[in-house]
Nucleic acid binder design. Structure first.
Lengths: 267, 267
DNA sequence: GACACGCGTTCTGTGATGCCGAACAGACGG
DNA sequence: CCGTCTGTTCGGCATCACAGAACGCGTGTC
């Protein structure tokens, strides 16, 4: 579904591709898992094929059988592998301490996203102390136009690239406050550049307020963005400026870490 | 030489099993990733085979190419899948079988608590065979200083964190035997660390005796604790040592389950 | 500068193997 | 006691994954 099938990829192993699709299928199925029959029709293969695939994946710990040998859910090895994946992505590893500091300094849920061709992908998350937990999945490509991290990243691109990206990504409307036009977006990005941080003022979800700022790698390229999230109610307007400066400062700190303490952010 | 060989699993897809082994291989390789040649000799297959596998996995987002098309590291989709796996996996569910075994082995009421910032929250409970049922609410945050599970968790934290937590939580006095000072508590925790289990000797309720031991997640963090409860009358002093060892052993069993049980094939 | 060696990549033939489909065995529920 | 769900088994054909040799390319070494 999110993945368009095959870019004319030669060298592709059918059964492995099916196995990967099966993982996605099981992930979407939720906690109750999937049975062999459901897998089979979800993948469009015979039941016996689905059985072989699931058995093999289960043996590798990528799936696990929920009941005794009947339904399958995601396996615990995925936990370990996912954890290693974020560690091995040096940004995730290097950014985690900064993220903790940011969370502690603001008391809010802090997240770190990397820049993948203009899209933010969240690698790490540190919950704030508050009672409210936010739905904040990791490893997922989020939308650029309505998230603080996304706009912080977009603000570092030139206008032509932004237009092209939005052309491709679209601008889904989530709330009444979601920006509707590229012009509106570009204007907002200009403002973000001037103050050094981007806002998501109930643009993705009602009642949720985010502040984001970009950080840069050793070549000065925008490597990603930090953001903090909280209920709009809990963010007095007069504090937004201070909050933004804090996020910006932490992003700059991360920039100096990533660049070997040589170069500063490109504005 | 065939290092990962299986327990006579009939339905097994060779290429998928190899793909899974490849994921492990890349995970062990660390941040710099693996090249095709290394994968090939690591798996014991031809280079072209390794190429097909890695391309397929990369297309599914389970691997990602680090340089342009050369070396491969773990993919970001693993992050998302791992995150989902942890959401969909309740520790309680995994621990339930162990809990049953523990209850059966000891004949006592067994409980499982997760560690939430040092506080124990009981998720599951299995009643022993005896006539007495204990008031043991689930899903509720209990006090750390006077419960076996709480002290088992505390025993895994450093002294400063314990002091800070107790500062915040206080030490309500329930019985004459309830510990009164942080020093007393720290001393008790030190003893618990040495023997591998914590005791609650009528400290929360008179006549009630508990033994607890911590278990750990795939990162080695203390994820929670198991405990057993009975009337003090029914626990002869000489049995405490054996009881503690049993609880400790079951907690260890749960730890191996939670940490992904990789490499379970031993020929 | 030429050479050799390492890398990743390409291509093609072949036989192992993944795949389907049909049949089987329990578990429910009418 | 059937009909209809499951998950499981098995055999056989065609596919598809696999190996291996050859290619292009960048590196390092005389």
């Amino acid at each position: 579904m999110p993945n368009i099938e095959h870019t004319e990829d030669r060298y592709r192993v059918q059964s492995v591709a099916r196995a990967a699709a099966l993982l996605e299928l099981v992930a979407d199925a939720g906690p109750q898992g999937l049975g062999v029959t459901e897998m089979a029709q979800g993948l469009g293969v015979a039941k016996s094929t689905a059985l072989s695939l699931s058995r093999t994946l289960a043996h590798a710990g990528l799936l696990r059988s929920l009941d005794v040998g009947a339904r399958y859910g995601l396996g615990l090895n995925l936990l370990r592998l996912g954890d290693l994946a974020s560690q091995q992505t040096s940004i995730g590893e290097l950014g985690l301490p900064v993220l903790h500091q940011l969370s502690q300094a603001t008391g809010m849920t802090a997240r770190l996203a990397i820049n993948e061709n203009g899209y933010p992908i969240f690698l790490e998350r540190v919950d704030g102390g508050g009672p409210v937990r936010f739905h904040a999945p990791l490893g997922q490509r989020e939308e650029p136009h309505c998230t603080a991290a996304g706009k912080a990243i977009l603000a570092q691109m030139d206008e032509a690239s932004v237009r092209q990206l939005i052309e491709e990504a679209g601008m889904r409307v989530h709330t009444p406050k979601t920006l509707r036009s590229v012009e509106e977006l570009l204007h907002d990005l200009e403002r973000a550049r001037q103050v050094g941080f981007a806002l998501d003022d109930e643009e993705e979800a009602e009642g949720v307020f985010c502040v984001g700022a970009a950080f840069f790698d050793h070549q000065g390229r925008c490597a990603g963005a930090l953001s903090v999230t909280d209920l709009k109610l809990d963010v007095p307007l007069r504090e937004v400026q201070a909050l933004g400066q804090s996020v910006h400062a932490h992003a700059e700190r991360l920039t100096t870490i990533l660049s070997g303490s040589r170069r500063m952010a490109r504005r």
